[in-house]
Structure formats: C-alpha cells, structure tokens
Simulated scan of single mutants.
Amino acid sequence: MHAHVVLFDGFDPLDAIAPYEVLQAAGLATGGAVSAELVTAEGAREVPSGTPPLTLRATGLLDPARADVVIVPGAAGTLPSEDGEEREDSIPAILARTLGTGLPGLLKEALEREDTLVATVCGGSAILAMAGLIVGRPATTHHQGMELLSAGGARPVAARVVDDGDLVTGAGVTSGLDLALYLLEREVGPRVAHAVETLFAHERRGVVWSDRGPAPAF
C-alpha cells in the first residue's frame, strides 16, 4: 500500500506528519509492503506550513494513478474573527486558496478511481467540500469546521473517523494518528495496526462511524 500525503502552502504539520509516521512504521512492520511519500499538486518543492518557520520538502507529484491512498491534511492558521472579517492567515482562507491550484482536479481524479482511497485529516475534508467533490457524502472535520462541510454539501458527522468506503475522514488535528491506524487495520490488517499502535504508545480513541446497520430511533 503506497500513500501520497499531500502538502500545500499553509498545511498543518501534525495533520501530515502523524499519518506519515504511522505509515512509515507500518513499512518497517511489513517489510516494505506499506510506504508513504510527501507530495504536492506541483511536484517536488519546499512547502511552508501554517506554523512558520516550519517547512517540509515534498519529494514528488501527487499522482492518483501511483497512490493506493491519498491523504489530505488541513491548514494551520488563525481562527475566523468574531466580526466575520476573514484574514489572509485564517484557516478558511488558507483552505480556500488551494482551490486555485491543481489540487482539486487531482483529488477529483483520485475519488473517481476505483482503486484509490482518499483520506483526510481535520480541514482536509473541507477542501473536498469547498471544491464540491463530496456533495451528499458523510464526513467529519474539526468541530469548528463543520459549517464548511455543510456549505459544501457534505453531511457532517460528529465522529473521530468516518468511513464512507473510498472516502475516510478524520476529525481534529490529533485524529491523524487514529485515522492512519484505522486505515492500516482496514487495508493491511489488525495485527500490523496493533503493532504500530503499540510502538507509538498510542491508544486509539473515539468512534469510527460508517453508514451501516439500522438507523437509531433517537
């Protein structure tokens, strides 16, 4: 399983690094059967995070044909002001700027491929929603970003991880660990996922929600 972890200007470092490290550790646990690569929509380059002066280097181009899994992080920045004025360094503004890049088109291609899984951490799902790529689909994000999902036509679900088949979304920043471990369990197997979880001294938390089973009566 090869994963492309997407970087863009203003990305949240933990959103990207947490799943990247989980998958790299899984590579060690599987003799190289799992791997991860930092990529952008433009190719190899230095990518400034939203937590300056931290910068990461992407080593390749996001290519849905080469990735079994595409992982999209959210952004790091300021919160929207109470007066409604949107600053350039606000998280919604940073996420919105990705719409002017080649990223939405590549994510659309990934979602349309039968053999590619798209996963998001925190505001990564808001990018998909703002691009109109997940209309009607259940998804989660940081609790302060649920309105962005609704505005884009997605169905917000208050869960740690939401599994909608070829779309798996994670909630707040630290959910990147839980999301990546869940992907390992689902795609590779629970024994490898448990081994990596133990290595990281992390106990998964929260609910993995999926649209299966009877609807609750309340």
Rank of each mutant, 00 (worst) to 15 (best):
A195Q: 11
S210N: 08
R160Y: 08
A126V: 15
M146A: 14
A93R: 10
L128I: 14
G105H: 05
A65T: 06
D89T: 14
G145L: 12
D166I: 13
P19I: 05
L111K: 09
L79Y: 12
F218W: 15
F8A: 12
A195H: 03
T40N: 08
A201S: 08
G189K: 04
G10I: 13
E21C: 10
A16D: 06
V162N: 02
L61H: 10
V173R: 08
D163Q: 01
V135R: 08
T101I: 04
L103Y: 04
A67E: 06
E185M: 14
G189I: 11
D164C: 12
A217K: 04
L79Q: 11
M1Q: 02
A126L: 09
A171G: 00
L23T: 09
A215S: 10
Q144H: 14
G100I: 11
L111I: 12
A3R: 02
T141Q: 01
G32W: 01
T174D: 03
R66H: 13
R205Y: 15
P52N: 07
A217W: 00
G213D: 06
L79R: 10
L23R: 00
V161E: 04
P52W: 09
E114F: 10
A16S: 11
L106S: 13
G50D: 10
E82G: 13
L79E: 13
G100R: 01
L95P: 00
H202N: 04
A193Q: 06
G84L: 09
I134H: 06
G50W: 11
T141G: 09
P104T: 14
A151K: 04
V47D: 03
A3L: 08
P156F: 08
L79D: 12
A16F: 02
D166Q: 15
T30P: 06
R205D: 14
P53D: 14
G43E: 07
T59Y: 00
G213W: 04
V168K: 00
T30A: 03
V162I: 13
D211T: 05
I134S: 10
A44D: 04
P53N: 14
A180T: 07
T98N: 02
G152A: 11
A193D: 04
G170R: 02
G84K: 06
A195M: 04
A16M: 02
T141N: 09
Y182E: 11
L179F: 01
P52E: 13
V157P: 05
A16G: 05
A36T: 04
A18T: 07
G74S: 08
R45S: 14
P19Y: 07
R186T: 10
V72F: 01
